[in-house]
Design a protein around this nucleic acid. Structure first.
Lengths: 221, 221
DNA sequence: TGATCCACGTCAGCAATTTGTCAGGTTGAT
DNA sequence: ATCAACCTGACAAATTGCTGACGTGGATCA
């Protein structure tokens, strides 16, 4: 999953970015409001982590402009501790959650999982599709209850597909969210990756929609 | 909107209940875990406000049982416990949001609005015409309930025609929207394509309006 | 430092599908 | 009847995706 991190404090930004990458996300970081607005408005992220205290355009203003433009991406805002008025403003401006500074990185990750799964319409942080179960908190994937070891790229692929189960996901979209770069389809690396995942998790988990992309059927009644 | 409030402290419960009613909600209040679980499992609420510190069955256990039973109702957790680890637990157990005590009633209302807003709108876009049904999310087309495999061009043709069902669509328009190029009609590729779709989905789905274009009759009551 | 393993990209070959073209055949309006 | 519009079956070319094999670079450990 691809995230946008908006944080002007370089030190905090670096720390958070490292933790997010370790948790398996593809992360892009910007340090000011204008850049944040542009990226959030033109690119497609799984979620955005937005610091309110920004130089230049204020974080709240950025968020409002995104929402005004119809962007529904989940947004987690970082706020100074204590001011409930600011929190209420943030939530009513369209934030999906807030986290007061300073925070534990574990809580950031949990809240991130929360808003991401909420935006996908899930209620639990475990996702089941056919014989396969994904536990995001433990970064664990099981096949008929048996744990399966996946490489980082394989895990990201599975996680993204399960989050978007029930709909066709294009190769371009997978490129962006698994690798981070959205371009150069001069290679079949993605197809090879899909093949490797199929070998581990069974051939019927991921269906091919020739000419369109891939689909993990939704098995939720 | 109908809410369930789960809070064992009668005094807090009464205050919150009054505020919620003032904000226009219909509120039902219960004071222990068992009752909460039963109500939440059998009734249909717009959202549930759940205190974690309950006598009897713990709030977290209640929440987990709801989620295990497939209840996706938005849940807002209240707790006095401040440790980040327990907050992480609550969120990962499937809570949609979390509010630490003590809280301002304004913030409760804002978060409530937020989770309710989020839970709305996850319907998959479907179009029905005669015996044919189009599910755009899954890019799936079914004929009398039986899935039919369509090629990319065939799918685009069907999708466009169903989107504009009830009116005649010219060949030029189809050329532009299926192929992209609105080129000269020097080939009969489009006619061949229509023929292939008819073979798969039945001859009566697409009517020919000789000299004008094609028509999918609107069968919406 | 060197041996080893693993993740992952690349490549070539293959099989299946897709799709444009074309050569008649039908249909319907006038 | 005539003619343009449209349909159909067949075929070949192009596209797409899968697979096994191989190579490279980084991490780990003796």
């Amino acid at each position: 999953m691809r995230l946008l991190l908006v944080e002007d404090d370089r030190r905090i930004a670096a720390d958070v970015e490292r933790a997010l990458r370790a948790a398996g996300y593809v992360v892009e970081t910007v340090h000011n409001g204008e850049e944040a607005w542009f990226r959030g408005d033109t690119e497609d992220y799984g979620a955005i982590i937005l610091d309110l205290g920004l130089p230049g355009m204020d974080g709240l203003a950025v968020l409002k402009r995104w929402r005004a433009n119809g962007r529904t991406v989940p947004v987690l805002i970082l706020t100074a501790r204590g001011s409930w008025a600011e929190r209420v403003d943030g939530i009513d401006a369209g934030a999906d959650d807030y986290l007061p500074k300073p925070f534990r990185i574990e809580e950031l990750l949990a809240r991130l999982r929360s808003i991401v799964r909420r935006s996908a319409g899930h209620a639990s942080s475990r996702i089941v599709a056919g014989d396969v179960e994904l536990d995001e908190r433990q970064m664990k994937v099981t096949l008929r209850g048996v744990p399966v070891a996946l490489s980082p790229l394989e895990y990201r692929l599975v996680a993204f597909l399960l989050h978007h189960r029930g709909r066709v996901v294009s190769q371009q979209e997978l490129d962006e969210n698994v690798y981070g770069h959205g371009e150069d389809h001069e290679s079949n690396a993605l197809e090879v990756l899909v093949g490797r995942v199929r070998k581990k998790l069974g051939a019927d988990l991921i269906e091919t929609r020739r000419g369109f992309g891939y689909l993990v059927p939704d098995t939720t009644p």
